[in-house]
C-alpha cells in the first residue's frame, strides 16, 4: 500500500487537479467498501455511503494535512458516515417494523446477497469489531497495526480479536461442511 502515492494524489486534488480524484478512488475503493460493509452489513447501503464518502473527501479536501496518513483520513470519514447512518437508522427501524410487513433489501439490515456465503457466515457469527478486523485484514491487506490505528483500538486487542474471529469462522465452516456431508 503506497501511502506516499495517495498523499501525492490528495495534495494534487487539494490544488484542484480533478484527475487525481480517479486515482484516489481506485487506490482506496476496496478499503472503503469493505470497511463500510463491515459496519452497515448491507451492500446496497454500503454503496450509498461509499458515494457519500467520496463526496465528503471532495468537499473536505482543503482540510487534509499534507504528509499525514491519507488512508486513515479517508477511512475515518467512511467509518464516521457509516456510524452516523446506523445511529439514524436505529430510530427509522422502529417505525419501519411497525408500519411495513415486508422487508426491503435496501433497508433490511439482515439482507445479504446470495453470492456472499462467507460474508453471510461472518456477519452472523462475528461481532461488529471482529467483522471489521477480519474484513480490513483480508480484503485490503491492512497490517494489524494499521487496523488498530483506523479503529482506534490497542494493537493487542486487534491481534487477539483477529485470531479469535478466524477460529470462530473455521469452526462454523467445519461444522457446516460436516452437516452437508
Amino acid at each position: 500500500m503506497d501511502k506516499k502515492l495517495l498523499d501525492d494524489y490528495l495534495i494534487k486534488l487539494k490544488k484542484g487537479d480533478n484527475n487525481a480524484f480517479d486515482a484516489i478512488y481506485h487506490l482506496t475503493k476496496r478499503g472503503v467498501f469493505s470497511l463500510v460493509l463491515s459496519i452497515v452489513k448491507n451492500p446496497y447501503v454500503a454503496e450509498d455511503i461509499m458515494q457519500d464518502t467520496y463526496l465528503k473527501i471532495k468537499e473536505k479536501i482543503l482540510y487534509y494535512k499534507d504528509g499525514t496518513n491519507g488512508y486513515a483520513w479517508i477511512l475515518t470519514i467512511a467509518r464516521n458516515l457509516s456510524l452516523n447512518y446506523l445511529n439514524k437508522n436505529k430510530k427509522v427501524d422502529v417505525l419501519d417494523t411497525e408500519e411495513h410487513e415486508y422487508l426491503n433489501p435496501v433497508t433490511d439490515k439482515n439482507f445479504v446477497k446470495d453470492d456472499m456465503p462467507i460474508f453471510k457466515i461472518a456477519k452472523e457469527h462475528l461481532n461488529d469489531f471482529e467483522l471489521q478486523v477480519v474484513v480490513l485484514y483480508s480484503v485490503y491487506g491492512y497490517k494489524h497495526r494499521e487496523i488498530a490505528e483506523i479503529l482506534n483500538k490497542p494493537l493487542g486487542s486487534v491481534l487477539w480479536t483477529y485470531n479469535n474471529a478466524i477460529k470462530k469462522l473455521q469452526k462454523v465452516l467445519k461444522k457446516e461442511e460436516r452437516d452437508e456431508a
Binding site: 461509499m50 467520496y54 465452516l173
Partner: peptide
C-alpha cells in the same frame, strides 16, 4: 482459504458506478 474467499466475495460485490456518480 477463508480470507481469500472473503476477499473474492468483496471484489465481486464492489460497486462499479460509484466513481461515475461522484466524479
Amino acid at each position: 482459504n477463508i480470507l481469500s474467499q472473503l476477499k473474492l466475495e468483496m471484489e465481486d460485490n464492489l460497486p462499479n458506478n460509484v466513481l461515475d456518480s461522484v466524479k
